[in-house]
Simulated assay, not measured.
Amino acid sequence: MMGKLLGAVILLSALAAGIAIYYFQVYGFYTEVEPHGTDDVMLTSMTTGEREPIPYDAFRAIDADSSPIRYRACFSTRQSLDALDGAFAPYEGAAPRVAPGWFDCFDAEEIGDALADGSALAFLGQRNIEYGIDRVVAVFDDGRGFVWHEINDCGDKAYDGSPVDETCPDRPN
């Protein structure tokens, strides 16, 4: 009888832990980001290297303090893809990260497919928004846009313990 009781306690504890881990991973750490209204979507200019806002509306975003790569945003813009392509720095090798299912405006698979077939382009939003993390902005030819964070080369090196070269900025203390 004592073995069955102990087994039930272990099973219930494991179930409770699993539910808690799932909740915190999918819901618990995320918060809605309040839009600023003018500078939520910024791209890096190819001519000046400075960040510039682009016109946008319908902005929605989520973020979490638990990881620098949990930021996701959706928006729409009236700016043509051709105009953006000529003015702003492209982001090579962009690979959107999956968002929680409840943040339904962000579909990483659709974004990745559009980047691959050329119906969307990826731009540098901000290099090293946090050390080793870049903000990437993708815009579809129909005006839909998406933002996420990616680990850059300096971040890859710093996080896996490889020596960081001189092209990387100084790491903050």
Rank of each mutant, 00 (worst) to 15 (best):
I62R: 04
E92V: 12
E52D: 05
D40Y: 03
D82I: 10
A83C: 00
A8S: 15
S80F: 05
T44S: 08
F29S: 13
A73T: 02
I133K: 07
Y23M: 00
A17F: 07
N173W: 08
F146E: 03
P55M: 05
N128V: 01
R135I: 03
Q79A: 14
I151H: 00
A20N: 14
Y56E: 03
F75Y: 07
R171I: 10
E110S: 14
G101Q: 10
L43C: 09
S66I: 08
K4W: 15
G93Q: 09
P53V: 03
G145M: 03
D160C: 01
K4C: 11
F123A: 03
T48I: 04
K4P: 05
V139I: 15
D107V: 05
I10S: 09
L6T: 07
E109Y: 02
P163S: 14
G132Y: 11
T47S: 15
V147A: 11
S162C: 00
E92Q: 14
W102C: 07
G37D: 07
R72L: 13
G112D: 14
A108Y: 05
D107N: 15
Y91W: 09
C168A: 10
G112C: 05
G161Q: 12
T47P: 00
F140T: 08
P35G: 02
D165K: 07
H149Q: 13
A108V: 07
D134V: 06
F75N: 02
Q126D: 02
L115A: 01
D63C: 00
R135K: 11
R60P: 00
D170M: 06
G37I: 04
G18S: 11
D165E: 11
L15V: 15
A17I: 11
K157R: 15
R51P: 00
D117V: 03
E110K: 12
D82R: 14
K157P: 00
A8I: 14
F146R: 04
D153L: 13
I133R: 12
L115K: 08
F140A: 14
T167M: 11
A8G: 13
I111N: 03
A138P: 06
D85P: 01
A158F: 12
V136F: 04
I129M: 12
L12K: 00
M2C: 00
R60K: 15
C105I: 04
E166T: 10
V9N: 00
G125D: 07
M1F: 08
S162R: 15
M1D: 10
R127K: 15
T77H: 02
D57Q: 12
D40L: 02
E32P: 03
F75Q: 04
R144W: 08
A16E: 07
P163I: 08
G132V: 09
S67Y: 11
F75L: 04
R171S: 10
R70E: 08
F146W: 08
H149L: 06
G112P: 02
S162Q: 15
T77S: 09
I129Q: 07
I54N: 03
M42Y: 01
P55K: 05
F140H: 13
R171E: 13
L115Y: 06
D65W: 07
S162T: 11
M42K: 15
S13Y: 04
F24E: 14
E52I: 12
Y56G: 03
P169M: 06
G118V: 10
R171K: 14
V139M: 08
L6S: 06
R171L: 06
K157N: 14
